[in-house]
Design a protein around this nucleic acid. Structure first.
Lengths: 188, 188
DNA sequence: CTCATTATTTAACATTTGTAAAAGGAATTC
DNA sequence: GAATTCCTTTTACAAATGTTAAATAATGAG
């Protein structure tokens, strides 16, 4: 659990008492490659911290698999809407590499907010960061050609290109596999 | 200020003591159509509540004006990244109708978080809502054709179509004016 | 009201992206 | 290590979107 604590402390320090309260609602789990940690249609009941491995969030658009995001080591993942409002999610969280995770139970966490203001503050900041990132993501796809989006990704997240298969990257960029393959050939 | 308080209370109730603390850091202002409330390159120092009127956030991409979002009556607007981290924003907030606003000073608000946990909780929820909305926005533009994006907008935000000029809507959807005009002609 | 300006539509053409199918590579299983 | 399956590239063609320019339409200023 050390990696999680370090990660959280880098965002907002919490008391050691809060730290143990938080750890008491965490559990470790392992997910094998290609399995859905959180399937489509289920209520998301946990936040997940990726100790190692790699996850993605995806959904189906007219039976086509669309990747919404990738989640690497040392990041927190959640289906926010589903977690906050206990409603079924149209999106799944899937491991695309064998992964070791820490699950933080949502309901328990939200209860801790009442007794531990520093935990509430910490997660306020966690989601503020996520919000800022998602606004940046909007900009990166809003008025850009497929080629621009790919070059942007190459620059900002080269590790995505290295570790993830083309079919996932393509829908993440909002284009088809064929189109991405073409762009790649073009750039070389 | 009544509208603001009602709006905030609908998200999370706060004590009357917190309410007056909050009001003490607010000020009202009026912005004329076509003027930048917050220009590009400036640090965003306030959150704004739209009492009436209409705002948009925009930025320049290769000298082309791109609308990131529209903000109607009864909503809170901020350039989050700039506000949270006191850094200059590449994006501007502009009035596209004469508007009456309430400004909430950022620095003062963040100070209130320390003394008023209910205010911190309130704004935690404000930004959680904004986060969920922005994830939904990503989905609405990620793997959809221009026509799908426009039809989606027609369905979910008909008021955008009614009150806002085509040129702003086009870049908001990530397409050119000509393309949007064509789609409109097509749908009729 | 008229003129000037700005916004929207239309047209013709260029470019990008999608679709479907086939071929080649890479990885996995038995 | 052969066979199978999955992934990526390529090709040919279709459809969508961008670009530029011109024609209308709507709006606003004097």
């Amino acid at each position: 659990m050390k990696a999680l604590i370090e990660y959280l402390n880098s965002i907002n320090e919490i008391s050691s008492q809060s730290e143990s309260a938080l750890l008491s609602i965490c559990s470790e789990l392992e997910v094998k490659k290609n399995t859905d940690l959180h399937p489509i249609g289920h209520v998301c009941r946990n936040l997940y911290f990726v100790k190692n491995g790699l996850l993605r969030i995806y959904y189906l658009k007219d039976h086509i698999d669309v990747t919404e995001s990738f989640e690497f080591e040392n990041s927190l993942v959640a289906r926010a809407d589903s977690l906050f409002h206990a409603k079924p999610s149209r999106k799944a969280i899937q491991a695309i590499e064998d992964s070791n995770l820490i699950a933080i139970n949502g309901v328990s966490l939200f209860k801790l907010y009442d007794s531990h203001p520093d935990i509430e503050r910490l997660f306020r900041k966690v989601f503020e960061i996520a919000y800022v990132e998602s606004v940046n993501r909007i900009e990166s796809i809003q008025f850009h050609s497929a080629k621009e989006r790919y070059e942007n990704l190459l620059e900002k997240s080269p590790k995505i290109i290295r570790r993830i298969s083309l079919k996932f990257i393509a829908s993440y960029l909002g284009i088809t596999q064929v189109s991405l393959s073409r762009i790649r050939a073009d750039i070389k």
